[in-house]
Design a protein around this nucleic acid. Structure first.
Lengths: 340, 340
DNA sequence: ATGAAAGCGCTAACAT
DNA sequence: ATGTTAGCGCTTTCAT
């Protein structure tokens, strides 16, 4: 092809002005049937496809939303993305996706690029809740929706899971089974999920008057290796925990691997509940009890919020969604007293 | 903000022409140090961010690549995407991502939108290897790279895994262990991976003079449920298989679940090898033997091919990469004769 | 119902 | 080293 057909080529072939062609391709009406048909035929004939770039240029909107996640390899995020992408496409929006690998620096770069590209909105699970980069977005008037992790210093629409309650339910369950020495493998305390899940853990202990034992609290970073390490450390304690609560899916995997390697019998010598369901949960014996979240749903709601914000910018209060996680009791927690 | 600062605002504030500003923001050199600094200061002051849309309009390139996958929830794809996205970002490209849910209709829609949006290239795992929609891309001169599934009717750069060989290695291993009644859970035969893995299965059987037994061949669709169903059917056979080869990860999961439900003892009563590693592989007892592919690598290579094609369109032969899968023997296949 | 024309923000060729 | 200017392909008044 010599040069891609433009609206002008169509106009010429159909013997009308470009304005009329524009009316037709945008279904604006006010065009005589016959004319419209002539134009449609010309479009067909030339294989004309309108340029979204030129259109965006003029209209100042790209029908593109930016999605930023910390780690696309964590199975949690593809599910969230799936929810976003699905709903977005229904509304004619497409998503440009980037994964930061938990790097605030990369995240800031990405934000800048997204601004350059004129995204109509951003859905983000930030690697830096305290960061200043969200300000850039706000200055440009670009709506932001935070998913799974809050944004601390700026007021944005947010859809979170009730982490405190999720962790609370899990730990309470353990307590009610008779456990007293319950360990937690924490996520980073500077992230909402990491901090809140620890909060839920403490809340349950307090409620049942179990003093917090520092040796039962292990710091992790939401990555598999840290779950492994934490479990090893727990195992070396003279007073081992009789139950473990892991703060996320990847650390659960690490923990499980350590359990196997240490020959520390899951469900017998040590009970377990993890935050987030994992594929393996129903395969291992005993089956894993977990706190499960509605991930695709999280994404769908996030897009919905963003969509509303894009279209009714001014007169909308900031909204905070808090989805309830669900405790799925399977087989990995036995009665605590059986152990003694 | 009243209106977003443009290159013109910067020019005015710095007392230069927009051409000079353009030179600076594109690092083209040929600008006096002092002038450059003045411009940089103006940019800073105004919080100017250049519009990628306007730039794309002029340059006829968007630095955006379209990525189309059939099912983002299949853990295989996030890993591929991760490889693509990583490499792309390094080169200044961003990815617009869409998942077709294996629908050719959705896929064609997406292709059209991607063309409208002027993507510089497309990386696709198609849901329709026979489809005509790739032609649209080619007509526009948009480079295409096929990943994991070939494109039949058009000549594009391709990066595949050697499915035949992967399946062959797995089945041969089973045969060498003494198995003769080896079942296969197939993927859709109209997809390259589905067909080729069946080919590898047949090749191994032939090589060892084991006649193909139709009752050992179950059709699946790469989804979990079909793996479950196939396994159930296999179990009802009067002559049960002594080994099963599953053609992909999700069907492996389904198969495993069925095995548990049927109390059909993995590794004892029935050996198993699956195509594609799965998270659970090393968690279940016995550990799963699998054919494993370099997924992130697949994505990296795909982007590399696309990148080269974008920049050296004309004078590049079509390339076909065939990555070798690796047989990971763990514990799920025992000697076949032990069974008798 | 249709057309003429301005202009979105930038790049690049050409001039100075 | 810097400026002038002509588009890129569209949408959108404002005329007719």
């Amino acid at each position: 092809m010599e040069h891609k057909p433009t609206i002008e080529d169509v106009a010429k072939l159909a013997n009308v002005s470009i304005a009329t062609v524009s009316r037709v391709i945008n279904n604006q009406g006010g065009v005589r049937k016959a004319t419209e048909e002539r134009i449609l035929k010309a479009i067909e004939e030339l294989g004309y496809i309108r340029s979204a770039v030129a259109r965006s240029m003029k209209r100042k909107e790209t029908y593109t939303i930016g999605v930023i996640v910390p780690d696309i390899k964590n199975p949690f995020f593809p599910l969230v993305i799936s929810g976003i992408e699905q709903k977005a496409r229904e509304k004619g929006y497409y998503t440009i996706l980037s994964s930061t690998n938990e790097s605030p620096i990369v995240e800031e770069e990405i934000v800048k690029i997204f601004i350059e590209r004129g995204v109509d909105g951003v859905i983000i699970t930030t690697a830096n809740e305290d960061g200043d980069h969200i300000k850039l977005l706000q200055e440009q008037g670009i709506p932001v929706v935070a998913v799974d992790r809050a944004i601390k210093r700026f007021d944005v629409d947010t859809v979170l899971v009730d982490n405190v309650n999720g962790a609370y339910l899990a730990v309470r369950h353990l307590i009610l089974q008779g456990h007293k020495k319950i360990a937690i493998i924490c996520g980073p305390q500077e992230t909402t999920p990491g901090y809140e899940r620890f909060l839920g853990y403490k809340k349950a202990l307090e409620e049942y008057n179990i003093p917090l034992d520092e040796s039962m609290v292990k710091q992790g970073d939401f990555m598999e290796a840290s779950g492994y390490k934490a479990t090893q450390e727990l195992f070396t304690l003279k007073e081992k925990p009789t139950a473990i609560f892991s703060s996320n899916n990847l650390m659960t995997i690490g923990c499980l691997k350590a359990l196997m390697d240490l020959d520390w019998k899951l469900g017998e010598e040590v009970s377990f509940i993890g935050f987030d369901d994992v594929d393996i949960a129903t395969f291992i014996k005993p089956k894993l009890s977990v706190v499960s979240r509605p991930m695709t749903n999280l994404g769908e709601i996030a897009f919905q919020l963003l969509y509303e914000r894009i279209h009714f910018k001014e007169n909308l209060p900031k909204r905070k969604y808090l989805l309830s996680p669900e405790l799925k009791i399977r087989e990995s927690c036995r009665l605590g007293n059986l152990i003694f």
